[in-house]
Amino acid sequence: MSLYTAETRRLSKRRFTRFFVLIALIVLGLLAGGTAYTHEKTTARTRAAAEAAADRAYQEQLGYAEQARQDCRKDPTSYGGNCDGISPPTRDQISAEQFLTPPFDFRADFPALVIAWAALLALVAFIIGASFVGAEWNSGGMMNLLLWRPQRLRVLSTKLSALLTWLAGLGVLSGAAWTGLFWLIATLRGSTAGMTPGAWQSLGLTGLRGLGLVLMAGAIGFGAASIGRHTAAALGVAIGVIVIFQFGLAIVLELARVRFYEAYLLPAWIGAWMVKSYDVVDYRAPCVYSATNSCEPPVLTITWQMAGGLFAAVSIIIVGVAMWTIRKRDIT
């Protein structure tokens, strides 16, 4: 327990940790501020103003059309010789909605913001997790700690559990604050209508999957940095995965006309995990006939269970290798 306390303290005291949490909070704050700024509750006054703006726009369009007709009569060739085709839009084509600042609909809009929160926090968790153990290896702090507690597996697993618990705490607190903030934004600048118990449950499950993503990213960063005994090892792996497996592989698979090539790429799996399923459509394949829809391209559906299984397996393998290497290798 004392080791766990020490590791939790160590993680919280690290400037790197504090800096990246601050950066994440600033980004989330800017996102919330931007959302609040670009949304507005629809009132009788704003609707009347939007109607007036739509009227003005319609009158302007009538004026432009009349001017074009006159120009056409003077020089029909510049209008293709046909002046009858010049007609102004009808009034119903210019609606007041086009001039309304949209309200923030909590039920419709917030799930995407939960995904943004989870993605940002997962990135931060990966970096903090990698740095937490990578800097210890690199500075020699890990060796020092092992002189005090010569139980390698216990030390590494305690560090990992301190990290994951800390990340879970950060996730829960920031998730609650995130939800509260947007509830406030929806109340002041939109609507919270339609938030039935079912809607809250769905939102909660999305949040839990987001928290799972954060923890898995933290564990993967931690494991990769421990294997490489340097923070840069994990960051290098991350960059390598993005450059080689995302951009490079995407190009190669597409050139090779591999079926459902998107299924080999990470975003499809992250998408499936966060929004419960992701359809990978193979537009190059012969279409599939059905009674209801005449011809549709074949679809491969990745479910959140499949994505969760994949992420869990990757996390377990990387952390397992990290545990195996610390147990086997000489610490020099």
């Binding site: 080791l3 020490a6 790197f16 800097a135 500075s139 020699g140 700690l145 002189l147």
Partner: peptide
């Protein structure tokens, strides 16, 4: 063992306090 190795951004007090925590 060999050269002294500590995490540079912590103070001496924090470094020792964390070790004291870890070692009970």
């Amino acid at each position: 063992v060999e050269s002294p190795q500590f995490f540079g951004n912590f103070t001496a007090e924090t470094t020792l306090s964390l070790l004291a925590d870890a070692g009970g």
